[in-house]
Design a protein around this nucleic acid. Sequence first.
DNA 1: CCTATATACTTGCAAGATCAAGTACAAGAT
DNA 2: ATCTTGTACTTGATCTTGCAAGTATATAGG
Lengths: 140, 140
Amino acid sequence: MISESKYGAVSIALWAKTALISKHLDNSLGAIHGIGLTEYMVLRSLMRAPDHVLRRIDIADALERTASGITRMLMPMEKIGLVQKELNERDARVSLVRITRAGEELFENASATLNAKSETLLKNVDGKKLDVFLDLLGAI
Amino acid sequence: MISESKYGAVSIALWAKTALISKHLDNSLGAIHGIGLTEYMVLRSLMRAPDHVLRRIDIADALERTASGITRMLMPMEKIGLVQKELNERDARVSLVRITRAGEELFENASATLNAKSETLLKNVDGKKLDVFLDLLGAI
DNA sequence: CCTATATACTTGCAAGATCAAGTACAAGAT
DNA sequence: ATCTTGTACTTGATCTTGCAAGTATATAGG
């Protein structure tokens, strides 16, 4: 009987708890704002980017997704006007993604929802230990 | 501009880091043992269950998955002999799942792989802080 | 220049997972 | 006894995502 190492236990706990949390967040964002957690993360990446513009490949890297996944995810987001395509004059291969004003507004509202829901989900974690938590996660 | 609360930041960090970790673990388990992380978790749940038997619905709850997902996931696992179906004489609705000897052996080997890979992925986390990490995750 | 290699996507196909609807059975209320 | 409600699955349609292959463009070397 191979016992589970502490490292393995942490991996598994992360996996299990994150599955729980992301499902709740996804449902809340979907019900209230019509976007999923992944789409929220796209908007977040864009909001944090200089000039609010990113290449598709940058989004893929930031979200640990493939380029094809990003291509397909952006289609409906572009259709409902959260982001818009833009050309790069230096490099004709790249198709830049810019967040629109509507996208910014939705992001702000969705952030409020996400923050509130997160507080509910993490209410059993001592507020003082959040920094420790963030430190540990940052070390990964 | 709504700033991100610390609770929101923790949720997002969990989501991002876990995506990274589970992808690596999934690839390792898949390449070496031919099962994914979710299948590993099924075997783990069974190993921890009294008598090594569970109802499908229990597995679904433990893994934060739907019953239909479990039904479909178990089909190939049963075909390659990792688990086997069993009837419940008390309640004809339930279809019990039992881990086989082959499943137990694969689980032990896969556990070793998972522990080793986890240690690599989490090597930047101070070993002494693993207990703190587990505590924080347990509080969720 | 021109060719070879690398990069940034896009698209077809397959796998995994959910939802909704349906089946079978159980258990409590009338 | 029967009826209603709830539980434990199973199945069909659909969505999301990744991988592999293809296209277009850039960059470096000869």
